[in-house]
Simulated scan of single mutants.
Amino acid sequence: HGRLAGSGHAGEAAMLAVLLTERGLGGDGADLERRLMRFRGEKSPRATSARQLAERLARQVGDAKTSGAVHAGTLLIHAWPDRVAKARGERGRFVLANGSGAMLDAADPLAGEPFLVVADLQGKAQNARITAAAAISEEDIRSALGGKIETRRQTSFDRERRAVRVRETVRLGAITLAERMLPAPVGADADRAILEALREHGLSLLTWSKEAQTLRQRLSWLHKGLGAPWPDMSDETLIERLDDWLLPFLSGAASLAAIDAGVIPAGLSSLVPHDLQRKVDALAPTHFDVPSGSHVPIRYDGEWPVLAVRVQELFGLDRHPSIANGTVPLTLELLSPAHRPIQTTRDLPGFWRGSWADVRADMRGRYPKHVWPENPLLAAATARAKPRGT
């Protein structure tokens, strides 16, 4: 009774206290509000003496007169704030503010209530049966327990929409009283949320253009070969250094789709020390000009840079193609006219003088419209098939 008193409704509180200790008064249902109404009118000697006991208890507290009727739930909530329960899923199933689960028979009139205050439970924590409870409104919960209610804003990343979302939840312990979506953040908050999403989900969330991918591979190759101060391009380091290379280029939008394609290459380049910036193209060029005049892209996705090129485009070249001021030979992936790999070499002059004869014999039969000279060093490089009629 001590837990129920002190709310200016000592008479009602005392009646409830008696009901909770005396089984069967006002009926056997779980709904204390109904039992309280029946108990007030019950004529049996047991009920009469119980009401007298309630009056004595109320007098001890010094407030026998109740100031207007009050709901059982409103009285109980002060006594058991951790036993506020919210309906979840199936009818009759509830979760309590303290995290436990509890249930009522689906046919019980209280089973359809959105919120209860549970005065008595029997059985195990997750499946305890509610034997005494009262309905309460969300409004009454908020006004009675304002100090215990927490409003939290949670920023999360919606992978499908590639955007940051903000959810506001109002909670009482383990119970969610309400939740709603708020507008996405803007400015510095949006930028921070984008970085947070990348830390959690990885760099693959970003849109990597061909230019960005190639630049990353070139810088990574320079870092592996030459070490610091060439920047490390591993996922781990780039995520660790997001504040250095990505944050300065963001524009305060909470969506990845709003990040301009040029932002990533600009950000990665900014990690290269100023005095090395102009050396990137000299040491790790994006393309190599072959004798046929074609501007062929260099691949940096393996241990060594690779030049995949049709063999006819290299005729007449007696020096192995290299980069980084001639210090790094390119791995040549020699292709057929149909762009299929024929052979890989890091010694072109050796290839011309060695296995070219076998390659030529095989290729002449397969691609008769193309030139297959006996001595490729004396032939003109070409990106085309033979002219008609030759």
Rank of each mutant, 00 (worst) to 15 (best):
S251Y: 05
K279Y: 09
T214Q: 15
P231E: 02
I264E: 01
S156K: 14
F288E: 07
A178F: 02
L172A: 06
E211S: 12
E179T: 06
L172K: 06
P248S: 08
E240M: 05
A163G: 14
D189A: 14
A253W: 03
M181Q: 14
V186Y: 12
E179V: 02
G227I: 03
M181E: 14
S204V: 11
A266R: 13
T286W: 01
F157K: 11
S204C: 10
S269E: 04
Q217C: 04
V290I: 13
S269T: 05
P273R: 15
A163E: 13
S251A: 15
E179F: 03
H274Y: 14
I194V: 15
D158A: 13
S269Q: 08
W230T: 02
G252Q: 10
E211D: 12
E150R: 14
D260Y: 02
A266W: 00
G187E: 02
R192Q: 11
F249V: 09
S270D: 05
M233G: 11
S251C: 12
H223D: 10
V280T: 11
R162G: 09
L177C: 10
Q217K: 10
I259Q: 03
S255F: 05
D275W: 09
L206A: 14
Q213K: 15
A184K: 04
S209P: 05
R216V: 04
A282N: 14
S234P: 01
T214M: 13
S204W: 06
T214N: 15
Q217N: 10
A266L: 09
E236P: 03
A253M: 07
P291Q: 10
R199V: 01
S156R: 15
A254I: 03
P231T: 04
P285E: 05
E160Q: 11
D260W: 01
E168D: 07
I239H: 09
P273I: 07
L246R: 07
I239Y: 05
L283E: 11
K210L: 08
S251W: 06
L203T: 11
D260I: 00
P231M: 04
I259L: 07
W245P: 00
H201S: 10
R180M: 06
